[in-house]
């Protein structure tokens, strides 16, 4: 029973973090007007969060559907894809998730992970300086979930909100031709290992 709850705790913590990260990426990449963002403090770090209800609801609905996959360790990667006017990917922020076997985990240590997120976010923010050349072309975004094999027959797991259906992503959104790979941060804790890197479209 404790292991079951543990999966939920991991998913809650990760989704809370992913929500902050998505807001920050959208702000840094100027996908939306800066006026809809407000400065907040998360994980002891100043971040920018949208205060637009429609956008916030979309992000929350997306992560609400991702959560069961993380809970069951069925999500291998969560990817925030930034796209240009033609809906071609400009950048892919890849959050690669792996969890240790549940039985080896000390439940009480799960909360210590939060203190590490701040560093992760700062590094995330530094992506601006690394890949700022792409900024002007960012027009929209989508969130992709790469499932593990075990989840391939469980599309219904992700369709937990009635009016928020999921589909298999187009090939052009999933792969970029000869991307420049920028590793940003790797973080390991007792409960989860997360690696963040950016795939950037080659400059023409």
């Amino acid at each position: 029973r404790q292991d079951l709850n543990f999966g939920q705790v991991v998913a809650d913590i990760l989704c809370e973090f992913l929500e902050v990260a998505i807001h920050l990426i959208l702000y840094v990449r100027e996908v939306y007007p800066s006026g809809i963002f407000q400065k907040r403090k998360k994980y002891n770090v100043p971040v920018q969060m949208s205060c637009h209800p429609e956008l916030n609801q979309y992000i929350q609905d997306t992560l609400h559907c991702v959560k069961p996959l993380i809970e069951k360790n069925d999500a291998e990667k969560v990817v925030v894809v930034i796209m240009d006017k033609e809906h071609h990917p400009v950048e892919r922020f890849v959050f690669e998730i792996s969890q240790p076997p549940l039985l080896s985990i000390r439940f009480a240590s799960s909360f210590s992970v939060k203190s590490n997120w701040g560093v992760f976010l700062i590094t995330n923010r530094s992506a601006e300086t690394l890949t700022g050349g792409q900024k002007k072309r960012c027009c929209s975004f989508t969130v992709l979930v790469h499932t593990r094999d075990a989840a391939t027959r469980n599309m219904e797991k992700v369709q937990v909100i009635k009016d928020f259906p999921w589909i298999v992503a187009d090939e052009q959104e999933v792969h970029m031709k000869e991307p420049r790979l920028i590793p940003l941060k790797s973080m390991t804790s007792d409960i989860v290992k997360m690696q963040l890197y950016v795939e950037e479209r080659a400059q023409k």
């Binding site: 996908v31 939306y32 007007p33 006026g35 809809i36 637009h52 429609e54 956008l55 979309y58 992000i59 609905d61 997306t62 559907c65 291998e76 027009c139 929209s140 975004f141 989508t142 969130v143 992709l144 979930v145 790469h146 499932t147 593990r148 094999d149 989840a151 391939t152 599309m155 992700v158 928020f164 259906p165 999921w166 589909i167 298999v168 992503a169 959104e173 999933v174």
Partner: peptide
């Protein structure tokens, strides 16, 4: 997709920059 796994995405797109701008003007 590689390894027999799926890559999934929401069917609905997020609000566009233009939609967000128009709602800001309404306020």
């Amino acid at each position: 997709a590689a390894g027999g796994a799926y890559v999934l995405k929401p069917l609905m797109s997020p609000p566009s920059r233009e939609e967000i701008l128009s709602t800001l003007m309404d306020l």
